[in-house]
Design a protein around this nucleic acid. Structure first.
Ligand SMILES: [Zn+2]
Ligand SMILES: [Zn+2]
Ligand SMILES: [Zn+2]
Ligand SMILES: [Zn+2]
Lengths: 161, 161
DNA sequence: GCGGCATCGGTTATAGTATAACAATACCAT
DNA sequence: ATGGTATTGTTATACTATAACCGATGCCGC
């Protein structure tokens, strides 16, 4: 699938700020948890934040190599594993791709709205969606630990276009 | 991950009936839609229904080969594509695996409760979960077309054990 | 019957995603 | 400096999915 549209809110948003905020927050989260945001990890996080579109692991790998760095699949998967564990990135199951977390630090249930046209993914954090799932699960005697909620469709920009 | 527990409701449920119902319904759906449930397609559906656990495409492939049939990945992926299109099976995104649909024929929003211990997946069909997602999506101007809702955790049986 | 057309499955090859296992290095604390 | 631990490098391989081409079969109209 080709993606051709802007990352998000064309013009209305200073993406450098998104990246800067994400990296700063990551530093803080790591410090708070006694973990190290090494150069590889930081660079992978920065690459994930290059857009508001989920990125595949091998695209990240190509970018690392374009940096001139020596890298193989484990390099990027290990960095992703680290970032996932700290809640700094999410994995989008339906795309086998990774996305910077828009609300890190909090232990949150995330949901995604993924545009099939432009590839942009917006993150929601609506507790009532999680609650609705948990309620029906409980009725079935099921104890929920993790939820994957991903909606595919068209974003506002792509509907008008 | 090893799976060691019974498929579902150990003892309480006649699984042959599940399979029989699924195959009968499939025949009916195909007839109604003017599609053909060929031997390969029927066998793949039967194999998907061999348990209430999502099955990987290559496990299905191995089973086809165990039948003595000549088969390669496209064989099973084509059958799955057909069955998915008719709503007779679902794909579980977080497992890259396939599961027989418990409520075929209706055009429904499906949600899954997947036990990380025994691998069993139960299918829900709760419109209020879909509604909650759609409501928040609409607020964001997003038009939902497909929803992926998968909860991971422990089923009732595995909690007591 | 025959030629065209469409559907289905077989076959080979390849693309895309992810992890195992072990070696080398960097880092920190004694 | 020495040893221990965490991180990264490296190679190999497993797992998931699709592309492309071909042959067989069946249907339809002539
Ligand atoms: Zn941005
Ligand atoms: Zn869009
Ligand atoms: Zn059953
Ligand atoms: Zn279970």
């Amino acid at each position: 699938m080709k993606r051709n549209a802007p990352a998000r809110d064309p013009g209305k948003h200073d993406h450098r700020k998104c990246v800067h905020t994400a990296l700063s927050t990551a530093e803080a989260v790591c410090k708070a948890r006694g973990e190290k945001l090494t150069p590889v990890r930081k660079r992978v996080l920065e690459l994930v934040w290059a857009s508001h579109r989920p990125v595949g692991a091998y695209a990240l790998l190509d970018s690392l190599r374009a940096d001139g760095r020596s890298a193989a699949p484990p390099t990027v998967y290990r960095a992703l594993e680290f970032l996932l564990a700290l809640g700094l990135v999410h994995r989008v199951e339906s795309l086998n791709a990774y996305l910077g977390c828009a609300h890190p630090a909090s232990d949150h249930a995330a949901q995604f709205l993924i545009c099939r046209q432009c590839g942009t993914a917006a993150e929601l954090e609506e507790s009532d969606i999680a609650t609705a799932i948990d309620r029906h699960a409980k009725r079935a005697g099921f104890a929920v630990e993790r939820r994957t909620v991903e909606a595919m469709g068209l974003c506002a920009a792509c509907q008008t276009a």
